[in-house]
Amino acid sequence: MEGRLMDIESIQARFRAFAREREWEPFHSPKNIAMALTVEAGELLEHFQWMTEEASFDLDSEKKEQVAQEIADVQLYLCRIADLLKIDMAEAVDRKMVINEEKYPADLVRGSAKKYTEY
């Protein structure tokens, strides 16, 4: 599967216009978008509830499309909250990866699922 790069700024502009056309700006506070994001993440999780680890890798086409829709909802809300708070998502991800690399040095955590506070 060949991936495409996402243009976050275009997604944000499109979502901004989408909200404006529907006069939803008053409802799109960072708090409300964060709450909506959690709901959508829960809906994503619901598709995997009670599945085995193996089954979670082998979704039929209908289930995979449903999961894709929930992933899109999560991504849209992430883009929206970053837009509202003027957070550069690419920069935030880069900074967080540096932090994660320091917290989880490969030579210490390889093959372990422990949290960084446990080693």
Rank of each mutant, 00 (worst) to 15 (best):
W24L: 15
Y77K: 00
P105E: 12
G3N: 09
C79I: 02
L45V: 14
G111K: 00
M51I: 10
Q49E: 00
N32R: 07
K63D: 03
H47C: 06
T52E: 00
D7W: 06
A72H: 00
F18M: 02
E65H: 08
P30A: 07
S10M: 13
H28I: 14
L78A: 07
Q66W: 01
V109G: 10
I99A: 02
P26L: 00
K115D: 13
E43M: 08
P30F: 08
E101I: 05
L44Y: 07
N32M: 08
R80V: 04
E25M: 13
E70F: 01
D58P: 12
M89C: 02
E91C: 05
L108E: 12
L37Q: 03
R16I: 08
L45P: 09
A106F: 04
A55M: 09
R4V: 10
V67N: 02
A34Q: 15
R14W: 15
L84P: 01
Y119K: 14
A13C: 08
L85M: 06
E25H: 12
V74F: 07
L44D: 06
A19R: 11
I99L: 08
W50H: 15
V74E: 00
S61D: 11
L59Y: 01
S112L: 10
R20P: 15
K103V: 05
S112P: 07
T38D: 12
Q75Y: 12
E65G: 02
M51K: 15
A113R: 13
A113I: 12
P105C: 00
F15W: 08
E23S: 13
A36Y: 14
L59C: 11
K63L: 10
D83R: 02
M6Q: 12
L76D: 03
E54D: 11
G42V: 03
R22D: 04
H47F: 08
A72K: 07
S61H: 05
P105H: 06
K103L: 05
E62S: 14
L5M: 09
M35G: 15
E102D: 01
L108C: 09
W50Y: 15
E46R: 12
V39G: 09
L45D: 13
S61T: 10
A13Y: 09
A72E: 04
E9D: 14
E118R: 08
A19C: 15
K86W: 00
D73E: 06
F48K: 04
V98F: 03
F57P: 10
L45G: 15
D107G: 05
S10R: 10
L85A: 03
L76Q: 07
V39T: 09
A92D: 02
V109L: 11
A34P: 07
E53T: 10
K96E: 02
Q75A: 15
A36M: 13
K63Y: 02
M89R: 06
C79W: 02
D58W: 14
Q66G: 05
T52S: 07
E70W: 06
S29T: 15
Q12P: 06
E53H: 14
